[in-house]
Design a protein around this nucleic acid. Structure first.
Lengths: 228, 228
DNA sequence: AATCCATTCTGACAATTTGTCAACTAGGGA
DNA sequence: TCCCTAGTTGACAAATTGTCAGAATGGATT
């Protein structure tokens, strides 16, 4: 058992949020996006699978989506699915990684030129809700707790929820260093708490049709108070 | 489709936390715990299944546990499982309900004669962590997000996470009425945020072997600050 | 105590889903 | 043109799920 899990394959290639060629680094020769040869075919199959998987996971949920459905929706053979993913869980995690990367971009954009803790928290929440509006269901799906899906072993794998939690933790630590967060706050723990709160609160808000802006404000107020 | 879902069967009968005959109501003739007849057999099968399911869900997780495993572990026929539960999800939810009831009892005990918000939050967290220590893995499993497990339809069913969130919300509303919680706090939303935070934070704490007491204190401090 | 009968249990079975693999295809390079 | 490697394919074996006709249990009736 515990059979190595092989290569977690060539880092994402998100497609959607692709670096928009902002001229910053004119040297880099598109590191690993082959435009030709068999590798190109492979990448195209993967992209088709990822898009189909995303559509189905969001639309039907993890369980009601079968690998064969994904293959059919992607227009590739059933066996191809297993050439790109170990199994359904691996595919789901890849989907989560993709969403995480997309959200990271949105949030980074929101954080540009923000100074106070109040603004920062507000902007991060706005970023999250904005992404959620543009990509209904994606965040909820991506934040799925891996332990539920796991077929036993593989305790490893950093899931989006952890990634985001640690991100919030680092951010709070910075804010703490600048004196914007009370010194007695355990910033790492707080990062986890906040992500948990956002997940649960976001689900509640969207299920009950709460007003987006007032929810954001209410959440921000609570977070900021807790941290100051 | 949407086939009625039949009777959500005879309310739990938790076994573990059974009402301890506190003499309060000497009349009630043990409402529905038949000590004889075929109904008794049925109840015993159900109890065996519930215990086996709990053991396996906690030990192996939802996915690695198959209905046939539960039946075997319970020592009943494979078909019996389907006489007591619609399917695996239904069984899992019954397990969650059971855990929820047990935790409710523990928390109620912790809240006896508590007056201030600080103490109340602290005691609730202590209750949760105490239960978690006595029943490793049960809470994490019970708090599992249903949307992941769902096979499509059935949006309804109140899951433990919602139940607890609403409970916290009611509790906070009471505290707010007494002036212990700031009047501008949306207590319902706060209830959800807190449960989400506890879930994520608890998982983080147990995974990283954080000290129980200091985690409780750190969490309580953040919650109280947010609410006041 | 023999019989009846409603309730519950059982496990073989059909239907569905998952993951594998030998054969096949595409297309760059000699 | 032919070769050769990387990639694809779908039929197939294995595993799992949910059903149902028949069997068993035990209290009630005669």
């Amino acid at each position: 058992m515990m059979m190595e899990k092989a290569e977690r394959t060539e880092a994402g290639q998100t497609g959607h949020v692709a670096r928009s060629d902002d001229g910053a680094n004119p040297i880099a020769p598109q590191p690993d996006i082959p435009e030709t040869g068999p590798a190109k075919r492979r990448l195209e199959s993967r992209r088709k699978l990822m898009e189909a998987a995303r559509r189905l996971f969001v639309e039907r949920g993890y369980h009601a989506t079968r690998p064969q459905d994904i293959s059919r929706e992607a227009g590739v053979g059933h066996g191809t699915f297993y050439l790109h993913f170990d199994d359904k869980l691996d595919c789901f995690l890849a989907f989560g990684d993709e969403a995480a990367s997309e959200l990271d971009v949105i949030i980074a954009a929101h954080l540009v030129s923000v100074q106070t803790l109040d603004d920062a928290v507000l902007e991060m929440l706005r970023g999250i809700f904005e992404y959620s509006r543009k990509n209904p269901g994606v965040l909820a799906a991506a934040l799925t707790d891996i332990s539920v899906l796991s077929t036993g072993e593989e305790v490893d794998r950093v899931v989006p929820a952890d990634r985001w939690s640690l991100g919030w933790g680092r951010f709070l630590a910075e804010m703490q260093a600048k004196g914007h967060v009370a010194p007695d706050v355990d910033t790492t723990l707080a990062g986890y708490l906040i992500v948990g709160a956002i997940r649960q609160g976001g689900a509640y808000a969207s299920l009950n049709g709460l007003d987006r802006d007032s929810t954001i404000e209410a959440m921000a107020k609570l977070f900021v108070r807790a941290l100051k």
